[in-house]
Amino acid sequence: MAELTMVSAVCQALGRALKDDKDVVLLGEDVGVNGGVFRATEGLQEIYGADRVIDTPLAEAGIGGVTVGMAAAGLKPVAEFQFMGFIYSAFDQIISHVARLRNRTRGRLSCPLVIRAPYGGGIHGPEHHSESTEAIFAHIPGLRVVIPSSPLRAYGLLLAAIRNPDPVMFLEPKRVYRTVKQEVPDDGEALPLDLCFVLREGGDVTLVSWGAAVAETLAAAETLSGMGIEAEVIDVATLTPLDMPTILSSVEKTGRCVIVHEAPYTGGFGAEIAARLAEKGLLHLLSPVLRVTGYDTVIPYAKNEHRYLVSENRIIDAVRRAVAFPEEP
């Protein structure tokens, strides 16, 4: 079996969904003939036709609106926003309608749709191509926010998102689109939404992360192991609704937690997890919950963005501080 990158795994899942369910349609800018600017839809229009793999006019608010209409009318649209930085034009649709249509009609109409957007920095993109604003969506009741961190999870979670009867924001960390390859069987098996994935077990500290930063978090855990510190690594995967029991039971075991995300510090989704640990896990904590995040700055342009992105060293520093607490490491 060929090994796939994450972006190829996304494409494989989309193809599978198109094959399995005639109501599934893909739409977005350049998703058809061109196969998407990242090639996440490569070859699909040839197989499934221009009626189901739909090139749209260049208008993001419009993409948001037509996607709502398609979903309410019985299709299962998967819309690609070319970059997360361009999704803001569609906020009115996402926040006022996607998240609310089921609720405001008490289930008479619903929005079984997926909004895909490559997100995050690290690919030397131009301005407005690098942000991580997942916390904005996580704050909106009615949205599921799902973020894969490996080819296997991209395939399984995307299938789950498409089959889910409610809307899913599926945010793809484009920095790791092509950095890792895995065997990804096209078996049509979905992975569970609303559950964290424990990627590594350890008894000294819990590292909680998602998206591209999972790579640095896992690397840090290996380095820490060499230093005698065993870290448990959790990939949150579904930010909302949050699987707090998995995080809490890990922290009950380790007593320490470091949260790692690429998005800015203030109001980042790590703040939500830290607050819940304070509310529900205080007596198990041996040290303060720490966060290793992006800064409260605009993510720098290409030349300096590597200084903004979370590094393995910063994670290791935070873990050493947590383990040494209340002493300095």
Partner: peptide, 8 residues
């Protein structure tokens, strides 16, 4: 725009 999606 939603109407266009319904019509589609």
């Amino acid at each position: 725009t939603q109407a266009v999606g319904v019509a589609y």
